[in-house]
Design a binder for these strands. Sequence first.
DNA 1: CTGTTAGCGCGTTCAG
DNA 2: CTGAACGCGCTAACAG
Lengths: 332, 332
Amino acid sequence: MVSGQKEKLTIKHVAEAAGVARSSVSRAFTRPEMLSPETVRRVLDAAAKLGYVPNQTARALSTGRHGNVALIVPDIANPFFPPLIRAAQMEADRSDFCVFLGNSDEDPKQEDKLVGRFVGQVEGLVLASSRLSDERIRAHAAQRPLVLINRDVDGIPRVLIDSGSGVREAVAHLAELGHRHIVYVAGPATSWSNKQRRLAVRKSAERLRLKVDIVASVVPSYEAGREAVAAVIATGATAAIAFDDLTAQGILAGLADRRINVPSQFGVIGCDDVLGAATYPSLTTVSNRSVEAGKAALSLLVELLQSQSVRDIRYVLDTHLVVRNTTIGPTE
Amino acid sequence: MVSGQKEKLTIKHVAEAAGVARSSVSRAFTRPEMLSPETVRRVLDAAAKLGYVPNQTARALSTGRHGNVALIVPDIANPFFPPLIRAAQMEADRSDFCVFLGNSDEDPKQEDKLVGRFVGQVEGLVLASSRLSDERIRAHAAQRPLVLINRDVDGIPRVLIDSGSGVREAVAHLAELGHRHIVYVAGPATSWSNKQRRLAVRKSAERLRLKVDIVASVVPSYEAGREAVAAVIATGATAAIAFDDLTAQGILAGLADRRINVPSQFGVIGCDDVLGAATYPSLTTVSNRSVEAGKAALSLLVELLQSQSVRDIRYVLDTHLVVRNTTIGPTE
DNA sequence: CTGTTAGCGCGTTCAG
DNA sequence: CTGAACGCGCTAACAG
């Protein structure tokens, strides 16, 4: 049984044990091809025997590369993000990167603070659904390679989930079912996705001659959706498209509280398809591509890191409507 | 507008600008009380003016403290973890720690690999629902302060969510409703929580003279639950307690596929209460304390880090049954 | 191919 | 209270 060797093993000890210079040990680990196979083997053997493992920190200080990246999201607990985080995580893993995770709590200040905390220890970062201003994003991007998810800033590499296509299908779907007056329950004002969805609802409603109202809702959550119901009903609309599934779920609950039946009396459509068919009635929603987005963002970042290139990249993923059971004609 | 100053600002530049020695600059940041207020102010001013920020890496190399911790979970996308991660995150934030997040993908090998990747850059780690063997956990704990969540290893600080109490209530609840034969749909074999829940079901069923069968299910997921339904039905039981809500949700779906009505023909109880009332029928389940667990684990780790103490800590959070609509008597 | 010698940026004795 | 000098562990020129 190997007892805990608390003593610090450095490159020096390995060098002595292998009878070579310290630099050779270093090279054996980072550029084996510069050494004779014989030497490499001797060094690696000695290292293994001693249980030596290179000190990441010292290496970073000397090279400037720490092998870390940061991922910041507004709310880890929002079901939209975990799959994205997971995908990013696994992609980072493929290139041996460690990922710092930050939760901005939907707050720009906090997000800024996190970036500051991370920036000294990472080679690059990805901001998902950033709540930061364009200026702040540009400022940070000037310091380190930066990839955005669901945020469209010129010149900054970005991965966009185009919920517009799905939302347009949603509006068309409602129009086909005979709805003439709908309402969009908005998300965070600083959210790019929210702007995009709101616009898509407006435009296609206009084109299809539907009346459309907007109901504000500060944060995307079950509670917020539930609270928005009063305002939603007050508009006199017969169907609602919510910023996301969580909000939609809250609306469903609020409607049920008021004994308003879905879908016969009122139609509801969500966005992001994070709830699967788990709501009741199962939610008609717009598909989500968060896994692809997370993976794409990270592989993009890794690519940027490796090939110092700084092209203007804009990667778009489209979406479509998933019809379930919260939508039928307004009068049954 | 400040343009991107890509030049590396070191302690040296600040020293010159402030007209002091480099060491004074260092002290102004780490031990202001050792300097005259006047000097501190001058240094901080100069630093602010230049936009200087201490190099975390260099500092770490010199002090051994990097201000990072790692958190490893089996599956970020499992709804049990995001709230836990978020809580841990925010607690770390309070002490200015950066957190590395790792996803072991339910695989001990991967978990080991992650620990190895992180250990060189963190002061401590927390393993949530670790799939590692006791030996490996002990080995890692010997290197760095380590806190466990839902894993009970002697001598290692741990935070345990005692689902046993809630599960016992669940069994009693079923017994009261008149069920005489129940089945437990198990989770991962390496899961401590699974062992605990299985045992609690067995024991209390025995005490209440209920017959109990066990159905295996490798990973906790919707799919796995759905697939387990055939075996569940085959046992002839009238109610099932699932390892977690995800599995329970899958069971609900599988039952619906077979036109078996819940709760009138079959009762289902989940664990962890991660779905809220979002399933249909809304799921009777065992409450979860993951937020407290995440927070507690991290504050415990921070505490260990600060006060080198190594007491044997075992922090237990109890749970209880949350009755909703998937359980009534077996014959209606 | 391999050894020697500087730093990387900062914290920390140890004198003054 | 402040400055000079050494070291953290490793990589990167620069010789041989």
